[in-house]
């Protein structure tokens, strides 16, 4: 098995970038890509078949992260009926890093509940898109955000394939991006599971090493093939995510984007990004040269006319 650490990943990326700049092919860029995540990073397996929609996870997140009081009590099921513009269910906000959504699935005896939060991608699009490096993927698996360097461009919000980062529009002085950090500061870095995982009465979420969770997920499917669709959402989507999902309903029926592909978002922009340094360094010199050459004639002519 090939082991990658961040250094070799970056080195590979640089080598790939240099190769493109020199030869202009895209093959090397693809070869340099697959980081595949830190080998011992942690993750969470969410078994949607077990969620009863009690919203205890939302309350736990609110308290752990010191978020402002909610608009409605955390035991109020009326939030499930709230709709955003376009009839979409509620999403993560600056005040709620995780929300539970309800789906009435035809033919299913009970509604299906889906917990939404940052999926903590192996190769996050938010991190890729951020030009001030405000994002960081920790070896433990969390995707962290540093508000002190953020310039508020909100490109990460556009880049995220799961529409997770929220923005504190309510703050006029210092608005920042707000999202789930997998309780890194207070729990994950001390080897503890995120607050939502620990609070869940149904143990919908299983916390562990991502590679172990994958084995567990496939074991569950093979033990009860009638109880699950044969897919672990997040195993391969956008290069793999730390949070993964099991469901008894096809994922596209319950709001999951099943057309994201297996490539990390960075793969789509790598060729372009490799060209950026070339544009910034070679082009100015090159075109200044052209400009001087073409102007030289005029300058000479002018001098001739003068004399």
């Amino acid at each position: 098995m090939k082991m990658f650490n961040r250094r070799s990943f970056l080195k590979g990326g640089l080598a790939g970038g240099a190769a493109i700049a020199a030869v202009g092919t895209s093959k090397q860029a693809e070869a340099a890509g697959s980081f595949g995540g830190y080998p011992d990073s942690m993750g969470v397996l969410v078994d949607l078949t077990k969620c009863v929609g009690c919203r205890t996870c939302e309350a736990a997140c609110n308290k752990e992260q010191g978020l402002p009081a909610p608009d409605k009590s955390f035991d109020d099921p009326s939030v499930f009926e709230e709709k955003r513009e376009g009839g979409l269910p509620r999403r993560t906000t600056e005040k709620a890093y995780t929300v539970v959504q309800k789906y009435d699935v035809p033919g299913r005896e009970h509604p299906l509940f889906r917990k939404v939060q940052c999926n903590h991608c192996n190769e996050p699009a938010c991190l890729t898109s951020c030009f001030v490096n405000a994002y960081k993927k920790t070896p433990e698996g969390a995707v962290m955000y540093d508000p002190t360097v953020c310039v508020g461009c909100r490109t990460c919000m556009v880049a995220c394939p799961f529409y997770i980062p929220a923005y504190s529009y309510s703050s006029a002085i210092n608005p920042v991006v707000k999202k789930c950090i997998m309780c890194y500061d207070t729990r994950l870095k001390f080897g503890k599971p995120p607050a939502c995982v620990e609070a869940c009465p149904q143990e919908v979420m299983t916390f562990g090493k991502r590679k172990d969770l994958l084995k567990l997920a496939h074991q569950r499917i093979s033990e009860k093939p009638d109880a699950y669709v044969d897919h672990v959402y997040g195993e391969t989507e956008v290069g793999g995510t730390a949070w993964m999902y099991l469901s008894d309903v096809p994922f596209d029926k319950i709001g999951y984007d099943t057309h994201l592909g297996d490539q990390p978002i960075i793969s789509y922009v790598k060729e372009f990004l490799a060209v950026v340094p070339m544009v910034l360094t070679i082009w100015p010199a090159l075109f200044t040269g052209f400009h001087l050459l073409s102007n030289r004639k005029d300058a000479l002519k002018n001098e001739e006319n003068k004399s």
């Binding site: 309350a59 009590s73 035991d75 709709k83 509620r90 999403r91 906000t93």
Partner: peptide, 22 residues
């Protein structure tokens, strides 16, 4: 207190019209 319910419930006036979020 954990569930912001009972005597810790948010005032009803603040709950209207803030469903969507961003």
């Amino acid at each position: 207190a954990f569930f912001n319910a009972g005597k810790y419930a948010p005032a009803p006036s603040t709950s209207a019209g803030h469903g969507g979020g961003h």
